[in-house]
Design a protein around this nucleic acid. Structure first.
Length: 490
DNA sequence: TTTTGAGTTGTTCGA
DNA sequence: GTCGAACAACTCAAA
């Protein structure tokens, strides 16, 4: 009778996905229990219908995260195997070659990814391979939060109250004494990630400002968290809307790729809590509710049709969106003639990141002032944001457009001038990204078209040449948007 | 069971 | 200049 190695000594595969860290990683913790050797794996899966893989800036972040995770594993005597192919084929070959007795992953929540995971989970036990999936990206699994009627929440307030009552698990420590099983070179060759899709762009090198701004990976994420707790959290409730200074956490890309876990973050906030209504605790509550919106977006991703394709509210299918290639291009390039919009769009292109308020302003401008389908904007963000998230990105675009869950009221049309004056009063943010306006005094920097010829001359600006005139008139665009949104009713 | 009231992120208008 | 109202429709839970 042939003997096989006992399940305890057969290696376990850890399939990393949106959890690129060692700490608080339940799949990894499970795999290395009892000193079992592990095989750490990441798979670049091909695009499928309905599936959204990282592109552009987010792909750049992914590569950096994979590299730092690989380095951390090498310090411990192992490595991260980064392969490419259909997950089922890659895993099939890997199980065959390594004789692994178990496969573990932390869950993902998009429909296409879940479908793949479900098939794998159903097929492997018959081959004597144990499969386990774990919760690691969210405070609570989406199916555990439901209204009294049993339906998923469609309004944030009640959703958040229900979530707040739930017990949040404590984060796990990083595993100690990891041991590793080898992987045959033949497998690595067969599923090699195609060259030419390398992480760091060269010609053109669009990642210059990103490299200057960001450190990717787990250690950098924890440093970013400590910095936020020490520097910004106390003033967060009052200052978080300011565009002209660093007031927010900038943790979004680390959360997106799981460099830092949501439970680590939650616990860190709790340990900074006093007990009362002090400004610090107000900041903590406010920040927590932002994390709550992330959970709410994931609830939508889990429960609704693919968010980046379908309006959550079907009556928006009748929206008379305009086709406007010229307007869309002006928006993407930061050439709309509205300084707050243009500064934000250029920051996005250069650094892969935008302040939440800036995201709302530019999204409102595209959907309402230009009356361009929110999906165009969502696609651009998907390619340009380092934190491009399959739940947050489309759900937030739908929220601004009004087609989403608990959406902004249709009559809320951001005035780009007012927003600039409120949240960038001295024009510092605008001037950082629009150097051509740097000599314009603060009162005019958000509305250069109202400057007198002498003022423009003094600031060395020629509207229409050195900086565009507004591509739409605010009042007219607002009226057009309100009419379009009103047309969806009755 | 039915009713009622409250609800992330804004703007404009008229008193 | 400041202030309140209007700009809908709907979800959810408390009364």
């Amino acid at each position: 009778m042939a003997t096989t190695a006992s399940p305890v000594t057969r290696p376990a595969i850890v399939w990393f996905r949106d959890d690129l860290r060692l700490r608080d990683n339940p799949a990894l913790a499970k795999a290395c229990q009892g000193g079992r050797p592990v095989i750490c794996l990441y798979i670049h899966e091909p695009r499928e219908v309905g599936r959204r893989n990282p592109q552009g800036a987010a792909l750049w972040w992914l590569h950096g995260s994979l590299a730092t995770l690989d380095a951390a594993l090498r310090e411990r005597g192992g490595q991260l195997h980064v392969l490419a192919g259909e997950a089922e084929q890659v895993l099939d070959a890997l199980l065959e070659q390594t004789g692994a007795g178990a496969l573990y992953w932390n869950r993902r929540y998009d429909a296409a990814g879940r479908e793949i995971d479900k098939r794998i989970k159903a097929s492997l036990p018959a081959r004597g391979v144990e499969v386990g999936s774990f919760s690691a990206s969210l405070l609570r699994e989406p199916w555990t939060i439901a209204s009294q009627s049993g339906a998923p929440y469609r309004v944030f307030g009640p959703f958040w109250r229900a979530l707040r009552q739930a017990q949040i698990e404590a984060p796990l420590p990083a595993p100690v004494n990891l041991t590793f099983a080898p992987l045959a070179v033949e497998i690595a060759r067969r599923f090699a990630y195609p060259s030419g899709l390398e992480p760091d762009p060269q010609q053109p090198d669009w990642a210059v400002a990103m490299r200057a701004q960001w450190e990717r990976g787990e250690e950098a994420g924890l440093a970013c968290l400590r910095d936020f707790l020490d520097e910004d959290l106390a003033g967060y409730a009052d200052d978080r809307d300011r565009l002209d200074s660093k007031t927010t956490s900038r943790l979004s890309p680390y959360l997106r790729f799981g460099n830092v876990s949501i439970r680590q973050l939650w616990q860190a906030l709790s340990s900074h809590q006093h007990d009362g209504a002090g400004t610090g605790d107000r900041g903590i509550e406010k920040f927590r509710s932002e994390l709550g919106w992330r959970e709410f977006c994931y609830s939508q991703l889990y429960h609704c049709r693919p968010l980046h394709q379908h309006n959550i509210q079907p009556d928006f299918d009748a929206m008379p969106w305009r086709r406007d290639e010229h307007g869309l291009l002006a928006w993407k390039r930061g050439m709309t003639g509205y300084p707050i919009v243009d500064a934000a769009m250029r920051q996005l292109w250069a650094t892969g990141w935008l302040h939440n308020r800036a995201r709302m302003i530019v999204a409102s401008f595209l959907a309402k002032h230009l009356l361009i389908d929110w999906r165009e904007g969502e696609r651009w963000f998907w390619e340009t944001l380092v934190d491009a998230d399959p739940a947050n990105n489309p759900a937030s675009w739908q929220w601004v457009a009004g087609s989403g869950a608990d959406a902004a009221p249709y009559f809320r049309v951001f005035n780009p001038v007012t927003q600039g004056e409120k949240f960038d009063p001295d024009g510092i943010f605008v001037k950082t990204w629009l150097p051509e306006l740097s000599r314009l005094p603060a009162p005019l920097v958000h509305r250069p078209w109202t400057a007198s010829p002498a003022e423009l001359e003094a600031a060395d600006i020629r509207l229409g040449e050195t900086y565009p005139a507004p591509i739409v008139d605010h009042a007219a665009a607002r009226a057009r948007a309100l009419a379009a949104w009103r047309s969806l009713r009755g």
